[in-house]
């Protein structure tokens, strides 16, 4: 089972002189359990793309299949789709509103019409999985730190038990440790519960470190699609569209230019350490 996008187009302001093509003939298959990174400069269409996947935006033309079913077919249950595809927006903590953390996380599953005991069980499980200390469950969400608030917001989506979790820049504004904690948590959700993860990010270093596959979006279409190594090999093209490779890739390029026999498609620190240390041991 998977998500398939078949020639998806999206036009803002369709019948007006201001019409803008935000998505241009996107064809894409996302297999179950994949960790997919989506990168692109501001305004490239990446947020528009992910908002199609749970039916928040409807394609101007083309089809989207979720688990084999066309989500635009008459009678398709979009509400059910939204509980299967969880979307965590940028700065999700701005959407916290309840009097305490636990009630806030209950909001999603409650609206699915589940029994109270099931709602509470799910909220508890979700808060546990994001690693929030139990003594904070009955505090006001507004008294938590930035990183804690963001965990609560993610728990709110997890409590709906989605099969697919989409996160739009989940680490913006967090300190380095907070950033690592959130990304480790997301990785764990993928490896332990087999969740499909879509991560929209501006940090090339994070994407290189965590994802299985990268999608580069530019002007509403897919420019590059592949494993991090392959994609960051095209660092010059990436620079032209406002992106970059991880700093470590540039270091490897510089070393190679100086005649060191290192692999310049390396994208993570661990790989680079092994390469360079190996070279100097010989």
């Amino acid at each position: 089972m998977s998500i398939i996008l078949d020639h998806v187009n999206y036009i803002y302001g369709g019948d007006t002189p201001l019409a803008v093509k935000a998505l241009d003939d996107i064809c894409l298959t996302i297999p179950d359990g994949q960790f997919l990174g989506i990168i692109g400069h501001t305004g490239s269409g990446k947020s528009t793309l992910v908002q199609h996947l749970n039916g928040l935006l409807k394609a101007s033309s083309g089809h989207i299949y979720f688990d084999g079913q066309d989500i635009y077919e008459k009678g398709y249950d979009l509400k059910a789709l939204r509980s299967k595809v969880g979307l965590v927006f940028q700065y999700p903590e701005h959407q916290l509103f309840e009097i305490d953390v636990f009630t806030d996380v209950c909001f999603g599953p409650k609206n699915l019409g589940l029994s109270q005991s099931e709602v509470q069980y799910r909220a508890y499980e979700a808060l546990k999985s994001v690693g929030l200390p139990e003594d904070l469950y009955y505090q006001s969400p507004f008294e938590l730190s930035g990183g804690q608030k963001r965990r609560v917001a993610i728990a709110g989506t997890l409590a709906m038990k989605p099969q697919v979790l989409i996160l739009d820049e989940p680490t913006a504004g967090l300190d380095p440790r907070g950033r690592d904690e959130i990304l480790d948590l997301i990785k764990k959700l993928q490896t332990e519960s087999g969740m499909t993860i879509l991560l929209v990010s501006h940090s090339m270093e994070d994407v290189a470190e965590y994802v299985d596959r990268i999608l580069v979006i530019n002007k509403g279409s897919i420019l590059l699609d592949g494993v991090p190594r392959e994609v960051f090999r095209h660092y010059q093209e990436l620079e032209q569209i406002g992106l970059a490779a991880p700093q470590v890739t540039y270091i490897m390029h510089a070393l190679r230019e100086k005649g060191l026999e290192v692999d310049d498609s390396v994208t993570t620190i661990d790989e680079a350490v092994d390469q360079i240390a190996g070279l100097f041991r010989r």
Binding site: P176, V248, I251, A254, I269, A272, I276, A277
Partner: peptide
């Protein structure tokens, strides 16, 4: 809860592996 630039971290890890490098390298150059 902080970090260092990637190049600084790389140099630090290499030093731990026994390479002789100065502390606090800040740039690729």
């Amino acid at each position: 809860r902080l970090d260092v630039p990637q190049v600084t971290l790389l140099a630090y890890e290499l030093k731990k592996r026994g390479l002789e490098l100065p502390d606090g390298i800040l740039t690729t150059e």
